[in-house]
């Protein structure tokens, strides 16, 4: 089995441990990830706030390159939820609107690219839960994680607005994967509540309150697992400041899902880049 792989900009920078652990996990699973040649930024939440055409054309560029790499490799796998949504939106909107597709292709044509709509865009969590599944993981699990209670955090953009692989209000796709490691699942109501996304940079006082509510909801759990670099940095980057404003200790380990699954699969901690996380992961060393 092979996937086309779109890491996205965060995974080359502040979220490099998400890239490293995803690759390590798929290596053990025996699944090849073929990086899209010369992919470029998906536009994040910036393009859609500046120009409608740019917000479709930017991700469409990487989709068109992916199509040019042939049909022998399957779907496009995307670990970042914002990249996933932007690529998916470009694919879905150009499929619905031939005029938009023509305009996008007008932008792409001078580079020798043409979008045809042949590729499916899949989130990492979708692939892990549907293509591999808890049963597929179970045979690779060597270390029980039974002493941990884990809070699955889904965030927004892998679930909404496109309802693809899970319930957008009450998702459960991470639970069988966590249970397969022997760990328990923390039941909570904050799993789909927004972390503030880029408001953390523009209006930090607003976003830090949003994160405080999420961290408070996870009290009792040993860790939160995430599937998005924006959620991850918002949940772990400001815990000291948030604890001081909330007048209580809200520090909590935050891991990317492939890091947590990788630990259960016996992958070396360095190969999962646990030392790169901003939250204190000493409970996992």
């Amino acid at each position: 089995m092979k996937y086309l792989y779109y890491p996205g900009c965060s995974l080359e920078g502040t979220a490099m441990e998400y890239d490293i652990s995803t690759r390590a996990l798929f290596d053990v699973l025996g699944i090849e990830l073929v990086e899209i040649d010369g992919w470029t930024c998906c536009g994040a939440s910036a393009a859609e706030a500046q120009s409608e055409l740019l917000s479709i054309a930017l991700p469409a560029r990487s989709l068109a390159i992916a199509e040019s790499m042939g049909t022998s490799i399957g779907d496009i796998l995307v670990p970042c939820s914002a990249c996933y949504l932007n690529l998916r939106r470009a694919a879905e909107e150009t499929r619905k609107d031939p005029d938009l597709l023509a305009r996008v292709n007008q932008v792409l044509e001078p580079e020798g690219l043409k979008l045809q709509g042949q590729k499916r865009v899949r989130h990492l969590l979708d692939v892990l839960s549907n293509d591999i599944g808890a049963m597929g993981l179970a045979e690779h699990i060597h270390t029980t994680m039974a002493r941990y209670l884990v809070a699955p955090y889904y965030g927004c953009q892998c679930l909404r607005p496109y309802v693809v692989f899970d319930d957008p209000e009450a998702p459960t796709s991470m639970e069988p994967l966590i249970l397969a490691t022997g760990a328990g699942v923390h039941g909570w109501h904050m799993a789909t509540k927004c972390c503030g996304a880029s408001l953390m940079n523009i209006k930090p006082e607003v976003a830090q309150k949003m994160v405080a509510a999420i961290l408070s909801g996870a009290r009792g759990a040993d860790a939160i697992v995430t599937v998005c670099p924006m959620c991850q940095v918002n949940l772990e980057g400001y815990q000291g400041r948030i604890s001081r404003s909330a007048h209580r200790d809200l520090h909590l380990p935050i891991l990317y899902l492939p890091q947590f699954l990788g630990l259960a699969m016996g992958i070396d901690r360095r190969a999962l880049s646990l030392e790169m996380n901003l939250s204190n992961l000493s409970a996992f060393f």
Binding site: R160, C194, S198, M210
Partner: peptide
Amino acid sequence: SACYYCTL
């Protein structure tokens, strides 16, 4: 913050 709850 583009959480898409209203759209949903």
